[in-house]
């Protein structure tokens, strides 16, 4: 029972896509998803409606996926998929910038990864949303890796992300996301690393003094929809869904360009110091960790291909 068929006689039945997103309701990502939903409803004359349930109302990405497999929900938008090949995109210095990331994700390199997601939970990638780069904020001035020595940094509790920060001599600490602000405020940790927009949304600027633009990770956010749901749609609706997603992706990319400068300006006016660090020195320490994991997770040569061919 993937689609709800209401009494819309004559138009071949209507379809509702319920999609759970972990991002906050007001975030640019959710705004992009909402634009997508509005455009899809308009172009399809409400034959296909998309309901976005944001703020993690349906639980984490993995919980939402369980619900997709059960057929209660049809889509998910988030940074974690449970597919090691995709989740590894959060490692350091894989991509030069967001365009590089999008180019790779739309190429044949990413095909086996998306197939792995279909294989795992029957979820197909219909959109790759750009995010602002992951960057370090701190209460300690960090210009080069040596400054991060012994720094307590909140990072996601994932093996390779922990190893990346241990490689620069920091002490990674796992703290639940709703505690990050409080932990920074009270000093349980000195620093955190996250996508700039997420850090901004969490008001990290209120409790930090320095932003070090390490920009080590350009990590995508995936919009996945159940294959069973997609197959239940007539061809024209499938096309509308994909077309409008591309439009939403482009809208988001443009918005993020301005958001990047806006956030940094806002933080500067709040009294934070924006530091352009020695990125090469960070890359030199972090990239070997990425290389070491990449061979295991993606197989030999894939990381090199990403670096050389795109």
């Amino acid at each position: 029972a993937c689609t709800s068929t209401s009494g819309d006689a004559g138009s071949g039945g209507s379809h509702e896509l319920i999609l759970g997103a972990t991002s906050a309701g007001g975030s640019l990502e959710v705004q992009a998803l909402q634009r997508w939903a509005d455009a899809v409803a308009e172009r399809s004359d409400d034959r296909l409606t998309v309901t976005i349930l944001a703020d993690g109302q349906l639980g984490s990405e993995l919980e939402t996926q369980e619900a997709i497999i059960n057929g209660d929900v049809h889509g998910v938008s988030g940074g974690v998929t449970g597919v090691p090949e995709l989740d590894f995109l959060a490692a350091a210095y894989i991509f030069r910038d967001a365009d590089h990331m999008l180019e790779v994700m739309r190429s044949d390199v990413a095909e086996p990864w998306s197939e792995a997601w279909v294989e795992q939970s029957g979820v197909e990638i219909v959109g790759v949303l750009e995010r602002l780069p992951r960057t370090l904020t701190s209460n300690v001035r960090v210009e080069e890796p040596g400054d991060a020595d012994g720094l307590d940094v909140r990072v996601p509790n994932t093996e390779f992300q922990i190893d990346i920060w241990e490689a620069v001599g920091a002490t990674p600490v796992g703290i639940p996301s709703q505690e990050v602000y409080s932990a920074l405020e009270t000093g349980v940790v000195d620093a955190q690393e996250n996508a700039l927009d997420t850090a901004y949304a969490n008001a990290v600027g209120d409790v930090q003094q320095y932003v070090t633009l390490t920009e080590h990770t350009y990590m995508p956010q995936f919009v996945g929809v159940s294959v069973a749901f997609l197959e239940s749609l007539p061809d024209d609706l499938q096309e509308i869904l994909r077309d409008e997603m591309r439009a939403a992706e482009e809208w988001l990319s443009a918005e993020l360009d301005t958001a990047y400068t806006d956030i940094l300006e806002e933080w500067e006016s709040q009294g934070l110091e924006i530091i352009e660090p020695d990125v090469d020195a960070f890359r030199e320490l972090m990239y070997p960790v990425t290389e070491q994991y990449a061979a295991d997770i993606w197989g030999d040569g894939v990381l090199d291909r990403i670096q050389s061919e795109f």
């Binding site: 703020d55 993690g56 709703q178 505690e179 602000y181 409080s182 932990a183 405020e185 009270t186």
Partner: peptide, 8 residues
């Protein structure tokens, strides 16, 4: 439930 900091 409300995703609020326990510390706060």
């Amino acid at each position: 439930i409300a995703q609020v900091s326990i510390g706060a």
